[in-house]
Design a protein around this nucleic acid. Structure first.
Length: 531
DNA sequence: AAAAAAC
């Protein structure tokens, strides 16, 4: 979407320019030193971070983007124009050979990005990656990592990997938005491992935050897989670790955690994050959710006080307010968007099915399973209670079903995920707990038994299928009560290339914040009637 | 509004 200026100088490095960038960064660091206490999402407000954040965002909304001062962060391409002009002058002064080479490179990068639907903004965005082999030719990647990539079947980088990896390897902060199942995890793990180079006992060096334990576990496993052959200490912040370790002296190369646990470790156990060189906020928009995790994220970001830290945000959905927050804390950030922002993956065949009532849903589900059950299948419901209830209903059927939600014990949750992965259960009934980030291989169908709470929830839920180039199917059941919310989802379906009945698109736009209907019980039949 | 996130 960018119009010229923002990518004009992508990936070029000659000394003069490098000096200019370094100088800019140096100045920035100076400024941020002075602002050390305000170095947070809430700009120095200490009492009620959440309220402060809300007012902060509102305040910022009224101001123009130009109001972001003191932090030379992401800038819109318009604002970049003068800087680019300066660069142009410099080039024109320089030898014509360098100028030609530079222009050629810029041209090539632009064409390449276009080909892969990569949109970038920010100053001097590094050239995208053509092949994984470039990791060693351009960035001195060690052989163990290339070996691991090959061994796990990563042949060619995905679009998000092509752009985010060189950005992070150039020590640039980054916020990245790319579809579900398009390889975001590898896009931050790979540069992280390369930057850390080798194991060291020098404090905690990298932190990854994930919104759920399941995702943290999965990310840890991926990380270990990729780091095989190197001696990195990769730790998941589990209860046992918190209990059995003196966290004030704790040291590891990569620490993966959920926000609350890490915040407590900072407050009570005095864990030291001042040496963290690399911080990733995965599923960033979830982590920033107002009234929720935001207040736990802020102290963590603050505790990572190393001035040369490289932070990055990743998600398939990145609402404007998250970008606003990101801009306010990040230095010289690059924004990478693959495809269009906030859209569903195009490899998913999406369908809407009218089920009339609650009873109709259960009938529809049973019927559809009777006709064809093509496991593995994921079923999302609205609440924990409904998950338990639907599980109870299906347990009487001849279907191997599992269930997962946060009322279960840690072990039960782990078993539910493992059994589903292993094919022991065909159908997994779940709350939104596993809606984000979870990578189950080859899920054929996602069923939204209950209508999702938001467009973002929809995108993430159905994104459990159609991953890594595979195709998938998503069926969303709806009742009369859901009709006011239908249009929103239908638009997402249309935007990702699915057909939608035209009457839905002419439904009135939803105004104000109507909340979703409270659902009755799954089965309308009283249990006692069964003989 | 619910879910998730600690002890």
């Amino acid at each position: 979407m960018e119009k010229g200026p923002s990518f004009l100088f992508a990936g070029v490095s000659f000394d003069k320019k490098k000096f200019a960038t370094d100088l800019a960064r140096f100045k920035e660091n100076k400024e941020s030193e002075n602002l050390a206490d305000d170095f947070s999402f809430v700009e120095g407000e200490k009492t009620d971070p959440e309220k402060a954040m809300v007012s902060f965002v509102k305040k910022r909304k009224r101001k123009s983007i130009a109001g972001v001062e003191g932090f030379n962060v992401f800038k819109s391409s318009k604002q970049l124009a003068p800087a680019v002009d300066k660069e142009k002058e410099k080039v024109e002064d320089g030898p014509s050979k360098a100028k030609k080479e530079l222009n050629k490179q810029i041209e090539r990068d632009a064409v390449f990005r276009k080909k892969y639907n990569i949109h970038v903004s920010g100053a001097n965005v590094p050239s995208p990656l053509r092949t994984f082999a470039e990791l060693s030719s351009r960035f001195g990647c060690e052989s163990y990592l290339l070996r691991n990539l090959a061994e796990h079947g990563y042949k060619e980088p995905t679009p998000i990997q092509r752009q985010a990896i060189p950005v992070l390897l150039s020590d640039r902060e980054c916020f990245a938005c790319a579809p579900t199942g398009s390889g975001k995890t590898l896009a931050f793990l790979c540069p992280m491992l390369m930057k850390l180079r080798c194991a060291s006992k020098d404090g905690i060096r990298a932190v990854i935050l994930c919104p759920t334990r399941e995702l943290a576990t999965q990310t840890t496993r991926e990380c270990k897989k990729l780091a095989k052959g190197n001696k990195f200490q990769i730790k998941l912040m589990k209860k046992e670790l918190v209990r059995s370790t003196d966290l004030s002296k704790f040291s590891c190369d990569i620490l993966i955690s959920t926000p609350l646990r890490l915040r407590l470790a900072i407050r009570r156990k005095k864990i030291d994050l001042s040496r963290v060189e690399y911080l990733v906020l995965d599923e960033a928009d979830k982590l920033f959710e107002v009234g929720n995790l935001l207040k736990h994220i802020d102290p963590v970001v603050k505790a990572c006080s190393n001035p040369s830290i490289v932070r990055s945000l990743f998600s398939a959905t990145l609402p404007d307010f998250v970008e606003e927050l990101a801009r306010s804390i990040m230095h010289d950030a690059v924004r990478v968007i693959v495809g269009r922002k906030n859209t569903a993956s195009e490899s998913i065949k999406q369908k809407l099915v009218f089920a009339g009532s609650e009873e109709g849903k259960l009938l529809a589900l049973r019927q559809s399973f009777a006709e064809s059950l093509n496991p593995p299948v994921l079923i999302f419901v609205q609440s924990k209670d409904r998950a338990k209830e639907l599980y109870g209903e299906l347990a009487f059927d001849d279907i191997r079903a599992g269930v997962i939600h946060s009322d279960l014990s840690q072990t039960q949750r782990e078993n539910a995920v493992d059994d589903f992965r292993a094919g022991k259960t065909w159908v997994l009934i779940a709350t939104d707990v596993i809606a984000r980030g979870m990578d189950f291989k080859g899920v054929n169908c996602v069923i939204n038994y209950d209508f999702p709470d938001s467009g973002a929830a929809y995108i993430h839920r159905i994104g459990r299928t159609g991953r890594a180039g595979r195709s998938g199917e998503a069926i969303t059941l709806y009742t009369e009560d859901d009709i006011p919310f239908l249009r929103n989802i239908a638009n997402l379906m249309k935007a990702s290339g699915c057909e939608v009945p035209s009457w839905i698109l002419t439904l009135p736009k939803l105004k104000g914040k109507k909340h979703r209907p409270r659902r009755e019980s799954i089965s309308t039949k009283p249990k006692d009637d069964e003989e």
